[in-house]
């Protein structure tokens, strides 16, 4: 077998994201990665919150004040939604892993359900949290 010689001309690349027409499944796939990355960063907030609780009343007071503020609540609200979206996206992957949901209609339905379901769950969680306190 002759050794392969790498050509010196630039190889054609496969079309990238900006070439394709956006579809629901594609958008939800990209969004799954984005939400995963956001949760990755948000894990630091959880660590700060827990370490503050372990550090004493003064440290916890500061952190609790931030998360109770308008900005803090907004962060928590968006964080809840991102978490729910990533969770439903993961469940969608489980459905696919088991071999179901590959038809066009099912794919679209699952992609839409991920977005709509995440919004409903987020609103439900906050409504319950705010009314049951």
């Amino acid at each position: 077998m002759a050794p392969t010689v790498r050509p010196t001309v630039a190889q054609p690349l496969s079309p990238h994201l900006q070439i394709y027409r956006w579809t629901w499944t594609m958008a939800m796939s990209v969004f799954h990665r984005i939400t995963g990355t956001a949760l990755y960063g948000g894990a630091a907030l959880v660590a700060i919150w827990l370490v503050a609780l372990a550090s004493g009343p003064a440290a916890y007071g500061t952190v609790a004040w931030f998360f109770g503020s308008i900005v803090g609540r907004l962060v928590l609200f968006v964080y809840t939604w991102i978490l729910m979206h990533h969770m439903l996206g993961g469940l969608r992957h489980f459905i696919w892993d088991l071999g179901y949901g590959f038809d066009r209609a099912q794919r679209m339905g699952l992609a839409r359900a991920t977005l709509i379901g995440s919004v409903i769950l987020t609103v439900l969680i906050w409504a319950l949290a705010l009314t049951l306190r």
């Binding site: 009343p57 998360f67 993961g90 469940l91 489980f94």
Partner: peptide
Amino acid sequence: RLTAAANAPLMLAFVVIVALMANRPY
């Protein structure tokens, strides 16, 4: 996949815990 399966119930419980923690004195 294994950790994802564990994360789903654990993070739902985590959300409940965080909601219960809100507005509590130290």
